[in-house]
């Protein structure tokens, strides 16, 4: 109980902190609206030029729902761990964080957790409700919502572990920008956030199936939209990645943390 109380204190602090940046939220929402406008017109003209209404098993409205919710999930899960960590190494603040009574990786996760809670309610939920109303029942309501919530929690954990792993690489290279942009572009493409995975050619799709990235956006959305019958299998794939990435990240962190050098401070 005591351990949980400590962690939730961090969650609360994060919630209060992120509520302070209302302008940031406004700009993010504005950016999402512009992105959705672009996606709408782009895919509308793509489907208009195509002789078939259904491509790769997806209709226009399927694609729209998928991409809009993917962007909502993206802005809700987005973390700046890589940047935060490299900045706190430069300033020397990381020493204080390492001395906290909670292991560093856990401390970081719980500090971010408040931000997740707030952005879930401020960005994801409104988007979901709007999509639900506009699409008039294209999203089934039932047990799939429960699976979706479980899946999102797992996706948050996977995303966090990927980010933390990449941030740890930065301890070795001192090239934050380069490493971060590599992660961003790979995750965006292979998770299905830019083009739904249903459109991928078979050869690439086979490779993507064995990568952890689809577990971040594609699997939760599949479960929500009831696109796949095998619910347990999808959830187990996610669980598998959570465990593998967390273990790999923990080992890698342990080796790397000795390398931290802070100049002055």
């Amino acid at each position: 109980m005591e351990a949980l109380r400590k962690r939730f204190a961090l969650t609360r602090a994060g919630m209060i902190e992120s509520l302070g940046f209302r302008l940031g939220t406004f700009v993010t929402v504005l950016g999402n609206i512009i992105y959705i406008i672009l996606v709408y017109f782009l895919w509308k003209s793509i489907y208009a030029s195509s002789p078939n209404d259904v491509v790769g098993g997806m209709t226009f409205s399927d694609t729209m729902i998928y991409l809009v919710l993917a962007s909502a999930l993206f802005s809700f899960m987005e973390m700046y761990i890589v940047w935060d960590m490299s900045r706190s190494i430069q300033s020397g603040k990381i020493i204080l964080d390492l001395l906290k009574p909670l292991p560093y990786r856990k401390y970081m996760f719980w500090s971010y957790s408040g931000n997740f809670v707030i952005s879930f309610f401020l960005t994801f939920l409104p988007t979901f409700l709007i999509v639900f109303v506009i699409s008039k029942g294209a999203i089934p309501i039932g047990l799939n919502l429960l699976y979706f919530v479980i899946s999102v929690v797992l996706a948050v954990l996977i995303n966090y572990n990927i980010d933390m792993f990449v941030a740890t690489i930065c301890l070795h290279t001192e090239s934050t920008w380069g490493i971060n942009i590599m992660k961003e572009s790979i995750v965006m493409l292979f998770s299905g956030a830019t083009i739904p995975l249903a459109f991928f050619p078979e050869k690439i799709a086979k490779v993507v199936a064995y990568l952890p990235f689809r577990a971040v956006y594609d699997i939760p959305l599949r479960l929500l939209l009831c696109k796949d019958g095998d619910i347990m299998k999808l959830l187990l794939i996610q669980l598998f990645w959570v465990i593998v990435l967390a273990a790999a990240g923990a080992v890698f962190w342990k080796i790397s943390v000795r390398r931290i050098t802070v100049n002055g401070g």
């Binding site: 030029s49 195509s50 790769g56 090239s175 490493i179 942009i181 590599m182 830019t194 459109f199």
Partner: peptide, 25 residues
Amino acid sequence: IGMILTNLVGFLSFIILFENFEEIN
């Protein structure tokens, strides 16, 4: 390398898109 990779991903998205569709508008 990061810069080229991110542009390569953009390039790849076009290739994937045009695997499914003949033309856009």
